[in-house]
Design a binder for these strands. Structure first.
Lengths: 205, 205
DNA sequence: CACAATTATGAGCAATTGTTCAACCTGGCC
DNA sequence: GGCCAGGTTGAACAATTGCTCATAATTGTG
C-alpha cells in the first residue's frame, strides 16, 4: 500500500454517538444538496451549512468531496436488488412474464427512493476512478445474470441473446430512470405493464 | 426588451472572413473540449487555447460559456431529423416495421456524429433556462408525432397509446444513446434489428 | 475534579474559474 | 499612404471552490 493513493475511506472512525450523528447529518444533507444542485454546484460548504455542521467537521469524516458521493452510491448499490431478483428466478419454472415483471418491479422500486439523487450519481458522477468502475461492474453483473436466464428459460426464442440481454437491461434501467425522474411523471402501474408487455413479447420473438 | 436580460446571441456579428474563421475554430474547439472534459471542467480558457485564439476573442463572439453550448446544441437539434421521419410516414400505408425501422435508423444516425458531446449536452447541460426548454420541447414533439402515427396506423393494437408513445421514444433515444456511447460499443446493425423487432412486436401487441 | 482523547469550529489559504478591458494589430477604402 | 472600424490580445480581477489547521469545546475515565 503506497501512502500517496487517494483516500476514499473516512479519515477517522467515529467513537462517540455524537460523532456518528454528525456523520449521518452530513450524509443526509449531501443527498439533498446533490439532488438539488447537481454534483459540481453542490459545494462542500453548502452541504456543511445544510447539515448545520462546520466545514471542518465534514472533512474530519470525509477526505474529499468524491468520498461523500461514493458513500451515497455505495448505500444505493447495496440496496439494489436487481441482480438478486434475476438470480432467484434462474432455475425456476415460472412463466417468463412473471420473471420479467418481478425484475421490472424491482428496478422501479430501486428508483422510487430519490430519483433526482440517483440521476446525479449516474450521470454526473466523476467519469473516472472508483465510482465509475463500481457502476459499470454492477451493470455488467445484471447483463450477465439476464443472459444466464435467457439461456436457461424455454420460452425465450430471441436469436441474438447477447444483444438482447444488453438491450433489455438498458431499456428497463433507462426508461424507468428517465420516466420517473421526469417532471411530468408517468403512472407507474401503466409503465410497469407496458414495459413488461414489450419485453416479454420481444423475448418470445 | 429590458437590458439586464441574459444575452445568448453573439455580442458581435463577424464582418470579415477572418472573424468567421475564428468563430468556427472556437466552436470546433468547444465541441472537442466539452466532449473530453465535460461541461464543468471544460473551461473557456481551455477552449480558447485549443482554438489557438485568445480568451478575449472568445468573449467577443460568445457572451458566456452557456452560449457556446447553446449554439452546439442548436446545430445538433437543427440536424435532428427524428420528428421529420415520423411525420413523413404519418399518412402512408407502409407496414409498421418499415416505419419503425426508418425511425430507429434516423435516431442512430443522429448519434453517430459525436456521441460523447451529445452525452454532455443532454446530461450535463444546465438544468434550467433556455437549453433545457429546447431539449424538452423537441422531446415532446417527437412523442406527439409518434402518438399521431400510432392513432393512424391500422397495425397498431396497443391499448394505452399515450404511455406507449412515451415508452417507445424514450426507449429508442436512450438505448441508442447509451449503447453507442458505451466504451464497449455494440454492433449497430444488431442493435437496429433487435430494437425494431422489439418495438414492432410490442406495438402490434 | 483532573486530564487526555475525541469532536467541533470557522477564518482563511491556494487554486481555479468565468469574464473584462485597455492596448494593440490588420485589412480594405478614399 | 493615411485612416479607422473591425478584429485580436492576454494580463488581471472578482468570485468561487475544495480544503487545512490552529484553537476551542465536549466527552469519558480514574
Amino acid at each position: 500500500m503506497t501512502s500517496d493513493q487517494r483516500r476514499i475511506q473516512p479519515r477517522k472512525q467515529p467513537r462517540q454517538v455524537r460523532a456518528e450523528l454528525t456523520r449521518q447529518r452530513i450524509l443526509a444533507a449531501a443527498a439533498h444538496i446533490f439532488a438539488e444542485f447537481g454534483y459540481a454546484a453542490g459545494t462542500t460548504n453548502r452541504i456543511a451549512e445544510r447539515a448545520r455542521v462546520s466545514i471542518g467537521s465534514l472533512y474530519q469524516y470525509y477526505p474529499n468531496k468524491d468520498a461523500i458521493l461514493a458513500e451515497l452510491l455505495t448505500r444505493h448499490l447495496d440496496g439494489d436488488r436487481g441482480t438478486a431478483t434475476l438470480r432467484r428466478y434462474k432455475e425456476s419454472r415460472e412463466p417468463l412474464e412473471t420473471i420479467i415483471r418481478a425484475f421490472v418491479r424491482t428496478v422501479i422500486d430501486n428508483h422510487l427512493d430519490d430519483p433526482q439523487l440517483l440521476r446525479i450519481m449516474i450521470e454526473q458522477a466523476p467519469r473516472s476512478g472508483e465510482i465509475l468502475e463500481r457502476v459499470t461492474q454492477v451493470k455488467w453483473e445484471m447483463i450477465d445474470d439476464l443472459l444466464d436466464l435467457l439461456n436457461a428459460h424455454p420460452e425465450v426464442r430471441v436469436q441474438d441473446k447477447d444483444t438482447a440481454a444488453r438491450l433489455v437491461t438498458s431499456t428497463v434501467e433507462l426508461t424507468v430512470h428517465q420516466l420517473i425522474a421526469a417532471p411530468d411523471s408517468i403512472d407507474l402501474t401503466r409503465l410497469e405493464n407496458e414495459l413488461v408487455t414489450m419485453i416479454t413479447g420481444y423475448l418470445r420473438t
